[in-house]
C-alpha cells in the first residue's frame, strides 16, 4: 500500500494540490455562508466596532480617562461631556472608551489561554486513557464551584490586577472547554478516516493535529465565542467587586462600581459602561449563534 503511494510522486503531488484547492474552496463556501447569515453578520459588525473603539481609544477619547477636573463634578450628559462626568470630574465617555480596551484585552487573552489549555487537557483526556479519569475528575471539581465564584475566590487570593483576572477566568472557563474538546475528539477518534491514517502509518502527532483536532475544531470555536462573551461580563463583575484591576484603572466594571456609589445623584455613571458591555456581549452572542447554526445544521431550521 505504502509502496504504491511512493511510486506515484507526480500524481501524488498534483493530488495534494487538488486537495488543497478543494480545502480552500470549502473554506470559501463556509465564509460565504457566514456572511450570508444575518445574525452572524450583525454580531461581527458589532464586534468590529467595539474592537475599533478599543484599538483607537487614544484618537476617539475626548479627554484623558484619569484626568480629574474639579470644576465639572457630577455633570449630567451634555454637548461637552456626552456621557456626563463622575465624582472626580472625569469624563465618563473617555473612561468607557478606554474601558473597552481593558475588556477586549482580557477577553482575548482569556479566550486564547482557555483555548490552548482546554484543547491540551481535552485531547490528553480523550487520547491517553489512564489520564482521562484523573483529568475529568479534577475538572468536575473545578466545575462544582458555581459560575464566577471560583474566579472571585482566586482573584481575591492572588490580589487585584489584570493578570489575576486573566488567570482566575482561565481557570474557571477551561474545564467546560476541555469537555467540549474531549467530546469532539472522542467522536472523531472513532471515524474511519482516522483508522485509515493509522493504517498508513501516520504518527500520533500527525493524527492528532491533521485529522482529529482539525475536525473537532468547530464546537471549540463556538464554545470560545461564548467564553469571550462571558469573560467580558465576568471581568466587569470582578472589577465591580473590587478584585479586578485596581480602581483608577478605567475598566468598565470599575466605572459601574463608581456609579453604584453615586446611584442617588448621577445615573449616567453606571448606565453607560453597562450599555457598552451589553453591546459587546450581544455581538458575541449573535456571532456564536450564527456559527452554531452553520456548523451544526440540525438546529438551522429552528430559526
Amino acid at each position: 500500500m505504502t509502496a504504491e503511494i511512493e511510486t506515484l510522486p507526480e500524481d501524488g503531488g498534483s493530488l495534494r494540490r487538488q486537495m488543497r484547492k478543494a480545502r480552500w474552496r470549502a473554506f470559501g463556501v463556509f465564509l460565504k455562508r457566514l456572511v450570508a447569515h444575518r445574525s452572524f453578520l450583525i454580531g461581527a459588525i458589532i464586534l468590529v466596532l467595539f474592537s475599533a473603539v478599543a484599538l483607537f481609544a487614544d484618537l476617539l477619547a475626548p479627554y484623558a480617562p484619569n484626568r480629574n477636573n474639579y470644576r465639572f463634578i457630577l455633570m449630567p450628559p451634555s454637548a461637552e461631556f456626552w456621557f456626563g462626568t463622575d465624582g472626580y470630574g472625569r469624563d465618563i465617555l473617555s473612561r468607557v472608551i478606554y474601558g473597552t480596551r481593558v475588556s477586549l484585552f482580557i477577553g482575548v487573552t482569556v479566550v486564547l489561554f482557555t483555548g490552548i489549555l482546554g484543547t491540551l487537557l481535552g485531547t490528553l483526556a480523550s487520547y491517553v486513557s489512564w489520564l482521562d479519569a484523573l483529568i475529568m475528575r479534577g475538572l468536575d471539581g473545578l466545575m462544582a464551584f458555581p459560575g464566577v465564584l471560583l474566579a472571585i475566590a482566586l482573584a481575591s487570593a492572588l490580589g487585584p490586577s489584570e493578570i489575576t483576572v486573566i488567570i482566575a477566568l482561565t481557570v474557571t472557563f477551561t474545564p467546560r472547554t476541555a469537555r467540549v474538546v474531549r467530546a469532539g475528539v472522542l467522536v472523531v477518534k472513532g471515524m474511519q478516516y482516522v483508522e485509515a491514517a493509522q493504517a498508513v502509518g501516520a504518527g500520533h502527532a500527525r493524527i492528532i493535529f491533521r485529522y482529529i483536532l482539525a475536525n473537532a475544531l468547530s464546537p471549540l470555536i463556538v464554545q470560545l465565542t461564548f467564553v469571550f462573551a462571558v469573560s467580558i461580563i465576568a471581568e466587569a463583575i470582578l472589577s465591580f467587586l473590587g478584585v479586578g484591576p485596581p480602581p483608577p484603572a478605567p475598566s468598565l466594571g470599575n466605572i459601574i462600581a463608581d456609579g453604584r456609589t453615586y446611584i442617588q445623584e448621577a445615573w449616567w455613571i453606571a448606565v453607560f459602561p453597562g450599555l457598552a458591555i451589553a453591546f459587546a456581549v450581544l455581538g458575541l452572542n449573535l456571532m456564536g449563534d450564527g456559527l452554531r447554526d452553520i456548523i451544526d445544521p440540525r438546529q438551522r431550521n429552528h430559526r
Binding site: 466587569a236 459601574i256 453606571a270 453597562g274 458591555i277 451589553a278 456581549v281
Partner: peptide, 10 residues
C-alpha cells in the same frame, strides 16, 4: 447579553 448586576443598578 446584559450584565445582571448592572441591570440591577438600572
Amino acid at each position: 447579553s446584559i450584565p445582571d448586576f448592572w441591570f440591577g443598578i438600572v
